[in-house]
Design a protein around this nucleic acid. Structure first.
Lengths: 217, 217
DNA sequence: GAATGTGAAGGTTTTCACAGCA
DNA sequence: TGCTGTGAAAACCTTCACATTC
């Protein structure tokens, strides 16, 4: 069976992230009652070039009108459909420590249609307790509960040491998309999408920037 | 006065992020008592190519021995110096909501030398309260306290609506590095380093990936 | 023999520049 | 006239391949 990576033309990660930015900018423009927006103005607001904006959008179709610009509401809807956020997603949180419980109350998730429906932990003292209206479930019931609740995405917020074990369980339960906050490289099969967010790394980037010069030798 | 962007050769953001990864891999290798490591093995562990590893390192000097590889502990120290994490940094947290207080207890920050020394909020009910051994200070005293405590980096974890105001205060107090968790585009002067972490965007990337096909039209 | 360090090649992303349309 | 959509050029990043060194 030959590999087919072709035919589905590859869109770069940067383009997708910029679409998220455009979406946010368009939401604001909509509230400000703009009917249309030029690539120039959209670029200015997101600190990009107009050509970048037009090129990004052109990968998905031609949404604008020459001489006029893009229709704000329609473009917003189109981008929502491209990103898959024109619907809501059932999400489960694994781990109710600091980060996990903070994220359960993170407004931006709900706002963008990511609904946290289940939370898990392996700490007996936490299981059964109430977190923002959700009861903490036992990891042992994960496979069943994920299926029963049609969970499609999982957020991992457990200590690094147990993260791989949790991911294995999640993958075994058929989940194909994982957002990981544990500071460790997780292994998942090829057909599972995994993103790892490492907040310390962002501080390291700042630390590098502040530290300045790096002449070899 | 002419602009001098040259002479300091530009290192790409990806290279810096990979250095953070190498640093973590080397910490593990050190614990496993490896004395040397080849670019091939380091690459395997970080899912990169050996050439990528060698090229990244070559921007900063030549740290390896032909035929042998890189000395684990020394390379780790060298990378620490490059990233500026061979020292500790005084950090202030602005905002003690969900995210803010979770990050104050985030072990990975301490471990990497980012010491949160001050926390601020503008909520009178929070000011004066104790969070993990730190007293919440009033935003009004920020400029003075940041200076008195030699704070060099600031983490913004306030609602989007007040984030720009907070950043303006922080910048006015002379801070040159900011990590922002508010889901908004902040404006800072050119000489201030700003990184924005948007966790909903990472879920949007997963949502895009799960949603599959995107043929134009 | 083994593995680095690095120019050159190859690939990807961004920017340019302009034809084409409202 | 104003602004999109897009090939082509430029810039940037990754991989190759090999001379070099231990």
């Amino acid at each position: 069976m030959a590999k087919r990576d072709n035919d589905k033309k590859k869109i770069s990660e940067s383009t997708i992230h910029r679409l998220s930015h455009y979406y946010r900018a368009l939401s604001i423009l909509e509230k400000e009652n703009f009917e249309t927006i030029s690539s120039k103005e959209l670029a200015r607001r997101e600190k990009l070039t107009p050509a970048q904006v037009r090129k990004d959008l052109s990968f998905f179709g031609s949404f604008g009108t020459r001489g006029l610009g893009y229709p704000v509401s329609e473009l917003k809807q189109r981008i929502a459909r491209i990103l898959g956020i024109n619907r809501s997603w059932n999400v489960a949180m694994i781990g109710v420590g600091n980060i996990g419980s903070a994220l359960v109350s993170y407004k931006e998730f709900q706002k963008q249609g990511f609904a946290i429906k289940l939370i898990f932990d392996n700490d007996q003292r936490k299981i059964g307790s109430n977190h923002k209206g959700l009861i903490v479930s036992d990891i042992k019931d994960m496979a069943r509960l994920l299926k029963e609740n049609s969970i499609e995405m999982v957020i991992i917020a457990v200590p690094a040491i147990v993260a791989q074990y949790m991911v294995d369980e999640v993958v075994a339960a058929g989940i194909k998309a994982i957002l990981n906050f544990a500071p460790i490289n997780l292994k998942v099969p090829d057909d599972v999408y995994l993103r790892t967010e490492n907040m310390a790394m962002e501080l390291e980037y700042l630390s590098f920037a502040l530290s300045g010069h790096h002449t070899p030798n």
